[in-house]
Design a protein around this nucleic acid. Structure first.
Length: 573
DNA sequence: GCCGTTTTCGGCCCGACTGTTTTCAGTCG
């Protein structure tokens, strides 16, 4: 069975968590985490590299030992060391570790003092007020843990879009190889580029006697089959991901695709429009009485209710049908519209690659420019730049630019917005830059008023250009900090500032609704990868998906412009 | 556990913040 890079990364991360709880050498723990990051960020499969005899130990953070462990996972499907560690602790302890305010030491204390080994046991103990009695714990910690547990319950088991891509593509390739398969598309929230995915909905059309259903349920990664029929089957993969496969005749392809892409609310709205015209719309087509009058393509289905084609990312029943009726649908931005990336780190701070490597990779993608935005001094854990080091980087970029042809590295920084709204570096060095990305990395707990005013004060600085990851949220991990986005957007428009749309799959920040709000309020956005390595530049596609869900057009996005035009935009009056 | 090397072991991002203490451990990024 092919082992995905994410499987290997999960394996190493779990091991790192358990070792950390056991009190293992922190650098050893870090080595496993680094390796997980390296493997997860590889453009090709580690399994293939092993099969082809490539030297994994040449990868950063992978030495002889970890290369062997990768090979072990790839060939045996498991890691003996992980099994050993799991057998002497409680595997579920890692779930405790991911609660905010709970680290390895506290997990250890909970486990040893109270015998807690699961979230359920933790909640029970917290409700009884037992946590506060432990040394190092207190009333507030106990309360915080209870709140976090409560918040977790509200969330269904969904995975981030990026985590769905690898199994989705693998399955896609596998099924496309089945003889007789014609159309094949992954519909559902995956096609709508939602931030998280609950399950995969695969739609297939095929010739008679096609073995696709048979091949599907016998896919080597299937853990168990939940349902199996001639037109629909449901399986659960080893990873826990649920996958539905539906087979429809070619004449129903468009109707089925529309139906299974959703959203549910959008489908219902379209069906209602049909009802008004005495039409019945289901996954097999558009019917007048018993006669199928459309359904081969999605365009056909929409046409029957007098609508133009609506892009999947817009199908949330949030105004797209009305917009379509009034011919006011946006022409959504595409990856091909992007001329450059406006947020990237180098190994001067917490990035992996050197300036030259980042420049080369961006140029190879066909970009005209790439902004280098390393961290500022406040973020000491990333080795953030002080004014002196930034000045050196500026010189280095100037020298490099002199050698580059048809491509330019932009001089910028991701500068921290401090608690009082000042920026983390003096104006006279910020002045020397092409622009700034200004971000909040601390004091997430401020009240809405204080947080909003903190950022607005920062925007008062004439060298503030782009507000980085505007809400600070991490999908399924950290709630956004509390800001009044409308006030921020107003302030941004008045001062000529922009909002970033951070394309990191764990961020996708801000959420689509705020992108739409920005567009409506006339604030343009910068879609940026926040790359920490050359491979990360490819994350731009997730930002594009989010931008499209936020109704953004090429004109709403500043990095669809060439450098000359962008330069004019970035200059504040 | 990786890396680099003065080649065989020492260093590996570390400061701020929080809630707990009463001088600091644990967590976070």
């Amino acid at each position: 069975m092919p082992v995905h890079n994410t499987d290997i990364a999960t394996c190493f991360n779990t091991l790192a968590d358990l070792l950390e709880i056991e009190g293992a050498n922190t650098f050893r723990v870090r080595a496993y985490r680094n390796a997980a990051r390296t493997i997860a960020g590889l453009p090709q499969r580690a399994a293939d590299m092993v099969a082809e005899g490539e030297e994994l130990s040449s990868l950063p953070g992978i030495g002889k030992d970890l290369a062997e462990k990768v090979a072990e996972i790839v060939t045996t499907g498991k890691l003996q060391l992980l099994q050993e560690v799991q057998s002497r602790t409680l595997p579920e302890l890692t779930t405790l570790l991911h609660l905010p305010g709970v680290g390895p030491k506290r997990v250890q204390a909970l486990h040893q003092e109270l015998g807690i080994g699961s979230l359920e046991e933790l909640e029970k103990a917290a409700r009884k007020g037992k946590l506060r009695q432990l040394p190092g714990f207190g009333k507030q910690t106990e309360q915080r843990i209870l709140e976090a547990l409560e918040q977790q319950k509200g969330q269904a088991q969904r995975i981030k879009l990026i985590a769905a891509e690898e199994p989705a593509r693998a399955l896609e390739t596998y099924l496309q190889g089945v003889k007789g398969v014609q159309e094949l598309v992954i519909a559902g929230s995956y096609r709508r580029r939602q931030e998280t995915i609950g399950d995969l909905d695969i739609l297939v059309t095929c010739k008679k006697d096609c073995q696709v259903m048979e091949r599907f349920v016998n896919y080597e990664e299937v853990h168990h089959v939940m349902a199996r029929g001639t037109t629909r089957s449901t399986v659960v993969l080893q990873s826990g991901l649920q996958v539905d496969l539906r087979v429809v005749p070619q004449v129903s392809y468009g109707a089925a695709l529309h139906y299974f892409t959703g959203s549910k609310a959008h489908s219902i709205a379209v069906r209602k429009l049909g009802q008004n015209k005495q039409l019945k719309i289901n996954e097999y087509g558009v019917f007048r009485g018993n006669k199928r009058i459309a359904g081969r393509s999605e365009e056909e289905v929409y046409a029957q209710v007098d609508l133009p084609y609506i892009e999947p990312e817009l199908r949330e029943a949030q105004g797209e049908i009305e917009a379509a009726q009034h011919h006011k649908l946006p022409t959504l931005v595409t990856l091909e519209d992007i001329r450059g990336d406006l947020h990237a780190h180098t190994n001067a701070t917490d990035g992996r690659n050197r300036l030259e490597e980042m420049a080369q990779a961006a140029q190879a993608k066909g970009y005209q420019y790439l902004a280098i935005t390393d961290h500022s001094q406040r973020l000491s854990m990333t080795n953030g730049l002080d004014a002196k080091r930034l000045a050196q980087q500026i010189d280095a970029i100037d020298r490099l630019n002199a050698k580059l042809n048809g491509f330019v590295l932009l001089k910028a920084i991701e500068v921290d917005i401090l608690e009082d709204g000042s920026l983390d570096l003096p104006d006279d060095i910020l002045k020397a830059l092409d622009f700034t990305v200004c971000s909040v990395h601390s004091k997430f707990q401020l009240s809405q008023q204080r947080q909003t005013e903190r950022i607005m004060r920062a925007m008062d600085n004439p060298y503030f250009t782009i507000l980085g990851h505007p809400t600070g949220r991490l999908i399924q991990e950290r709630a956004p900090y509390d800001v009044n986005m409308e006030r921020l957007l107003q302030a941004a428009r008045q001062r000529g500032c922009f909002l970033e749309l951070n394309a990191q799959p764990a961020r996708l920040d801000p959420p689509a609704m705020y992108c739409k709000m920005a567009k409506e309020m006339g604030v343009k956005m910068a879609i940026a990868s926040d790359a920490h390595s050359v491979n990360d530049l490819d994350l731009m596609r997730f930002g594009i998906g989010q931008a499209r869900r936020g109704w953004l057009e090429a004109d709403d996005v500043i990095n669809t412009r060439n450098w000359n035009a962008l330069q004019k935009l970035l200059t504040r009056q």
